[in-house]
C-alpha cells in the first residue's frame, strides 16, 4: 500500500474551493514536486498532508491512518512522529541558537541530544554556526537550520513548502543536493515549488490549478542530472 493516499479531497473556504476533488497516491521513498500558480492550492494541500489541517471532504490515509478521523491530539502525534516540515519563511525560534532550534524538535519528539543535533547541522554544512542566533545567520543558513530540524527525528515524509523561495542560486543548489541525498537514503519527499529547477529534479511532478490536478508527469530524466 502507498505511504500516502488522498481520496477525492476538497477544501472549501466559504464559496471558494481551494482544493477540488483531488486524488493522489505517494509511494514510500518517492520524490514528488507540486507546482502551480499562486493561489492554486499548493499550501492548502501541503497543510493537509502535513496534518496541520483537515480536508472538508474526502479521505487522507497516511501510513494506514485516516487523518480526517483523528483528533487534534492525534494529528499532533502524527506530525511529531512521521513528518518533517520545511517552510518558505524558515520559522526559527528567534531567541534560540541554531543547535537549540534543532533540539526543540527533538524535545517534542523524544529526547534532546546536543551531539546528534550538531551532527544534523554538520550535515547541512553549518557546524561552525551552531551557536549563532537566527538573526546572525543568512537566509540560506536559516533555511538549512530548518532542514536540519526537519530531518532530526528521521521522519518518514519530509514536506517542504517553497524551500528555496527566499534563497539565491548557490543556496538553492545546496538545498537540492540535500534533497538528493535524502532521496538516496529513502526518505519520502514532497516539495512545493514555483521554481522549475527545483521541480525538474524531482521524480514526479504534479501541477495544480484552481484546486485541481492539471498535470501529473513522471520525470524521465530523473537521476541523470
Amino acid at each position: 500500500m502507498s505511504l500516502l493516499q488522498l481520496k477525492n479531497i476538497s477544501k472549501i473556504y466559504g464559496e471558494l474551493k481551494a482544493l477540488d476533488d483531488i486524488s493522489l497516491e505517494v509511494e514510500n521513498g518517492e520524490w514528488l514536486a507540486i507546482m502551480g500558480p499562486s493561489g492554486s492550492g499548493k499550501s492548502t494541500l501541503m497543510n493537509i498532508i502535513g496534518c496541520m489541517d483537515k480536508p472538508s471532504l474526502g479521505e487522507v490515509i497516511l501510513d494506514g491512518r485516516d487523518i480526517a478521523k483523528e483528533s487534534d491530539k492525534g494529528l499532533t502525534e502524527i506530525r511529531r512522529d512521521k513528518i518533517g516540515l520545511i517552510f518558505q519563511q524558515f520559522h526559527l525560534v528567534n531567541y534560540l541558537t541554531a543547535v537549540e532550534n534543532v533540539m526543540v524538535a527533538q524535545y517534542y519528539h523524544s529526547m534532546p541530544d546536543e551531539k546528534e543535533a550538531l551532527e544534523a547541522l554538520e550535515r547541512v554544512g553549518l557546524k561552525d554556526r551552531a551557536k549563532h542566533l537566527p538573526s546572525q545567520l543568512s537566509g540560506g543558513e536559516q533555511q538549512r537550520v530548518c532542514i536540519a530540524r526537519a530531518l532530526i527525528n528521521h521522519p518518514e515524509i519530509v514536506l517542504a513548502d517553497e524551500p528555496t523561495g527566499n534563497l539565491d542560486e548557490a543556496n538553492e543548489n545546496i538545498v537540492i543536493d540535500i534533497f538528493k541525498q535524502l532521496h538516496k537514503e529513502g526518505t519520502t519527499l514532497i516539495v512545493v515549488t514555483h521554481d522549475p529547477e527545483v521541480g525538474e529534479v524531482a521524480q514526479r511532478m504534479i501541477v495544480l490549478d484552481h484546486g485541481r490536478i492539471k498535470e501529473n508527469t513522471i520525470n524521465k530524466n530523473f537521476g541523470n542530472t
Binding site: 502535513g50 496541520m52 506530525r79 516540515l85 525560534v93 528567534n94 519528539h109
Partner: peptide
C-alpha cells in the same frame, strides 16, 4: 503566535 504555531507544527502538545 508564530513561535507557538511553529512549536505546534513540530509536534508540541497543548500541554507542553
Amino acid at each position: 503566535r508564530k513561535e507557538i504555531g511553529l512549536r505546534k507544527s513540530l509536534g508540541a502538545s497543548d500541554r507542553s
